[in-house]
Nucleic acid binder design. Sequence first.
DNA 1: TGCGCATATGAGCAATCGTTCAGGTGTTTC
DNA 2: GAAACACCTGAACGATTGCTCATATGCGCA
Lengths: 115, 115
Amino acid sequence: MAAVRAGLPDAELIEDLGATFGLLSDASRLRLLAALLDGEMCVCDLAAACGQSESGVSHALRLLRAHRVVAVRRSGRRAFYRLADAHVRMLLDLALTHHAHATPLGTVPTDGDAR
Amino acid sequence: MAAVRAGLPDAELIEDLGATFGLLSDASRLRLLAALLDGEMCVCDLAAACGQSESGVSHALRLLRAHRVVAVRRSGRRAFYRLADAHVRMLLDLALTHHAHATPLGTVPTDGDAR
DNA sequence: TGCGCATATGAGCAATCGTTCAGGTGTTTC
DNA sequence: GAAACACCTGAACGATTGCTCATATGCGCA
């Protein structure tokens, strides 16, 4: 039991991981990242493709940028974003390919299993 | 560009994925799941190992249970939880092994990149 | 120089989340 | 039976989140 405690990842790693997963926990951001999976895009195209306001997209990208998940390339008045974090790309790829059939879900359950 | 839009995963999958990542976005839950990675444990041991209140652990497990990420086995007055979702286990494994060195971080940045 | 477009930002607000506290149920032990 | 234990639950609260609206900045073009 103390062995389990010793085997647990240390606090910083956990926090860090949680933050990363947190970035992936929002549907809007997920859509943006999915769109960026196969190449860079500018803000307005991202907004159009993902059906979100440009302001919203900008805010989301700012957050992702702050965590180095995406990176910018500016050209004229455009800003082209790309996926910059290999780790996140891997998680995303794995999640997207490997999901599909799993997790029936549908309704967010009030409980799920009776007790 | 319309091609990109077409290539995007459909809404339900995105929501679903976001929900899954959301479950992994909290340090407390992450610790619990990490502890469960190598076998089942009862609530009080989990609480002790992860340094959380039993009530808090119970709430967290309830949520995870509702999403079928963990499952219970009851024995006497104990409740033993185990990881029940292969997909989550994979994400977790990958994230824990593959992290370690990456993401310098430290301070949650106010921005991160200068503009 | 002045206008329009692409993007960035700040403030503000409603909604969601995580935690704690105060009981509540079922089980074992005496 | 009563007391101790392991767990569960609901309510309440403060904190965090994601959005929208309004305004700024920077670039290109006429």
